[in-house]
Design a protein around this nucleic acid. Structure first.
Length: 267
DNA sequence: AAGAGAAGCAACCGCATGTAT
DNA sequence: TATACATGCGGTTGCTTCTCT
């Protein structure tokens, strides 16, 4: 016996959406939201569409702040870097590019970027390393404050410098991780405190990233210099070790600082 | 100008994961 | 804890548009 269909296939429309259907869907969601139930939505909205189709249409084209059109060079670099480290996890990659959808990025990668990279021989996708995962699934203990950070950090001025994130993580980041969770206080800092979230370093920074879809993130300063601090976050709940690097964009101690995403590593 | 092939992209499909009961 | 169902995701398809000859 196969899987039950999510909708009555015989009575739903397929293929491209008409402007009328778009309007119906948009109006309905603006008035009532999705109601947390996409399956029931099309009937309520008067659409002869599958709930999944409505969801896709909304997420990829109709919801506000969607960015379409040309990708910038910076976006290219981010996509390449992330693809090199995490592979085709498009939704995660999309999360790092404001206004871009996973579908958009996937299409862009498959039709243009991949070819561009092959032509330029810039990089090869990096396969997941089981050895690395095993190593990182165990807690790491090392006293952050006793470390000579300069020995373990590396210039990240060019995003290209982390095109080999696995080696980077081994050689530069692994040595400075980590410390027992109760050894440092984060309460003085304006960071949303979540269970299992640790903070290291001088702790003057805040970042909304900690509440992102990456879950409960640990937070480590790995480099400090004038107007440039690179932050490493890692998620010790992810079965695949994950981390990403942020570059400080503004420096106002009294307000939440914002960070420009510079790269991410998943293992 | 027309046909063929390539490229672009919206949308579908089915599996994995999350959540409610 | 087990089960059913909804949602999310990535791979793939197939239609449309573009480019080349």
């Amino acid at each position: 016996m196969g899987r039950a269909p999510c909708c009555d296939k015989a009575n739903v429309k397929k293929g491209p959406w008409s402007p009328e259907e778009d309007t119906k869907l948009k109006d309905f969601i603006h008035k009532f939201g999705t109601g947390g139930n996409w399956i029931a939505l099309p009937q309520k909205a008067g659409l002869r569409r599958c709930g999944k189709s409505c969801r896709l249409r909304w997420l990829n084209y109709l919801r506000p702040n969607i960015k379409h059109g040309e990708f910038s060079e910076e976006e290219d670099k981010i996509i390449c870097t992330l693809y090199a480290s995490i592979g085709s996890r498009w939704s995660i990659i999309a999360g790092q590019l404001h206004g871009r959808t996973d579908n958009d990025i996937k299409n862009y990668w498959n039709t243009k970027l991949k070819k561009k990279l092959i032509m330029g021989s810039i990089m090869q996708p990096k396969p997941f390393s089981p050895t690395f995962q095993t190593q990182f699934s165990q807690p790491l203990y090392k006293d952050y404050n006793s470390i000579n950070h300069s020995q373990h950090t590396k210039s990240l001025n060019a995003i290209d410098s982390i095109l080999d994130p696995q080696n980077y993580l081994y050689n530069n980041i692994l040595p400075i991780l980590s410390t027992p969770s109760d050894q440092y206080s984060y309460n003085n800092y304006n960071i949303p405190v979540e269970e299992n979230m640790l903070m290291f370093g001088n702790g003057k920074e805040t970042s909304n990233s900690t509440s992102s879809s990456y879950g409960k993130l640990d937070h480590v300063i790995i480099k400090e210099e004038e107007n440039q601090e690179f932050m490493l976050y890692y998620n010790n709940e992810d079965p695949l070790f994950s981390a990403f690097l942020d570059k400080k964009e503004t420096a106002n101690d009294d307000e939440n600082k914002t960070y420009e995403k510079r790269g991410m590593m998943y293992y």
